[in-house]
Amino acid sequence: MNTKASSFRKNHQLHLMLIPGLLLVFIFNYAPIFGIVIAFQDFNPIIGFKQMRWNGFENFQYILSLPDFMPALRNTVVISVMKIVAGLTVPILAALLLNEARNVLFKRSVQTIIYMPHFFSWVILGGIIIDILSPSQGIVNKMLGLFGAEPIAFLSSNEWFRPIMVITDQWKEFGFGTIIYLAALTAIDPGLYEAAIVDGAGRWRQTWHVTLPGIRPIVVLMAILSLGGILNGGFDQIFNLYNPLVYETGDILDTLLYRIGIEEAQYSVATAIGLVKSIVSFILIGLGYYLAYKFANYRIF
């Protein structure tokens, strides 16, 4: 049929449009996936991929024998879980407060300020954090000094390192995190509030019985989706703030992988760590999307 032929000719253009994008993802996303084979080899960059000696799971056994591996795994999970919990409470509380603000100009100004840190990189924010937390000159220790406290080396202290990571992570992201909850809050049917008022509910009861149930689906969704990042822990942030003194509590899988892979150039070992991490993350993300689809009817595309 004539129309079919012309539609084929036009679809031909659609394929054509996709070529540059496909080329890029094949080279930079799919080719590295095949490169994962070096996790099962004793890879030497000078010899290249082909004449490699296969060594089965030796690299994986080697990882387990590394004294740094188990602490890094533990730190990653602990820091991630702390961040996820903070990320599900602080932004929601802030969104609830913002939602109650009556003065539009004031509300806008607060939003403008709290969204801003999100757009700075961890290099810039890291520089600021290192400065304000400096034991000798930093403003935080100067202020603590007014109360007679001894200076604390926050970024070199195994007691303080994790809390500082969670707090500074919230500093960067809580404002941005409110956006999605504010959108959910404005989507609540105003009729529900009117009905609650007719039933004699005060402000608190409206919040408890209308507002919170209204945003529950999105909270559940965000919680499920955050599971996929449990082995991340925040490389950019930690890499820019940690030092050997806090490896014990602050070294995460990605920072360990960086030191082994880039600094020590043990390509095969680092790839093996990355592979384990990718597989676990893939399963968690897949599971997360499945659960999100099932319970919140959420689809990414």
Binding site: V25, A31, P32, G35, I38, G261, Y267, T271
Partner: peptide, 23 residues
């Protein structure tokens, strides 16, 4: 099919070292 080709890159990647070696 095309959508999956692109979305899959969000879910799984070769990791730091294989990507470095390809570059």
């Amino acid at each position: 099919l095309y959508v999956w080709i692109f979305v899959f890159t969000m879910l799984f990647n070769g990791g730091l070292i294989p990507t470095f070696l390809i570059i």
